[in-house]
Design a protein around this nucleic acid. Structure first.
Lengths: 132, 132
DNA sequence: GTAAACCTTCCTGTAGCTAGAAGGTCAACC
DNA sequence: GGTTGACCTTCTAGCTACAGGAAGGTTTAC
């Protein structure tokens, strides 16, 4: 299977697939003419990568997950640990964004938004606003 | 004022301050010996940058905000527009993370997390789980 | 005099790709 | 047989927003 088909089937751009090969995530066979030749198993791995990346795992975490995926003797505990750590991180990010959203929303609400130069947003950024 | 002091007063690492100069965000004076020499106004600008960056504005947005900050004739509408766009973006990110969190949480809950190889997280990533 | 603590510039590396150049290959059509 | 277009290859460079470190100059304190 050429890379174009592999791209279609996995949902990953060809460029990304080549990049994943560069960094050693998978090594497809090559045909006589030097083209990459993807097996059905390779496609599974690519889809696995696509899904785990879209779930917010870093490429390095994906590397771990992929090796667990391919390891018939894996412990589910290993996988759960990675997923739980990621969950904590996501919670932290959400909390941070929600805080940020609150502050920004407050500022937008109090900005009259006309042609006058007074602006509480700028004042806040300059350290002169109500919110320290 | 040397860069070390400017760093302390602004809360930005020296490396970052030099970087901001590289990309043209501010141009401090230089003393005879070639050292950067920061004025009180420069410190205000640096603090402004530190605050707007920590509020999630990109460096390019900060560049716009900074020029509005320094523009005595600015319209508050311009500032509000940037802030509102950023708010929409933050909302989108939060929604995405919340969805992701739900999925991951579901998977973690259903993984027994022991030494057995069965793992619904891996199954999901492989495309064999309940969730498409 | 010298050692520590600054400062300078410049180069490299990070994550996770994306864009583009220069060129080889393959299938279809005239 | 020639040509066109869609593939494929490798290589290089660029993106964001810095951080780390090398090599060397300056200032301050003892």
């Amino acid at each position: 299977m050429n890379i174009g088909i592999a791209s279609e089937k996995s949902g990953l751009p060809s460029k990304t697939i080549r990049y994943y090969e560069d960094i050693g995530l998978l090594r497809p066979a090559r045909t006589e003419n030097g083209y990459r030749d993807y097996s059905a198993d390779d496609i599974h791995r690519l889809r696995f990568l696509q899904r785990s990346r879209s779930l917010g795992f870093s490429v390095d975490e994906c590397r771990q997950l992929l090796s667990l995926y391919q390891d018939r003797d894996r412990d589910s505990a290993d996988v759960k640990a990675i997923a739980k750590a990621k969950l904590v991180e996501i919670d932290r990010k959400i909390a941070e964004l929600v805080g940020l959203r609150g502050l920004l929303h407050h500022l937008v609400e109090h900005c009259h938004g006309d042609e006058r130069p007074d602006c509480p947003i700028i004042d806040e950024l300059a350290g002169e606003g109500l919110v320290q």
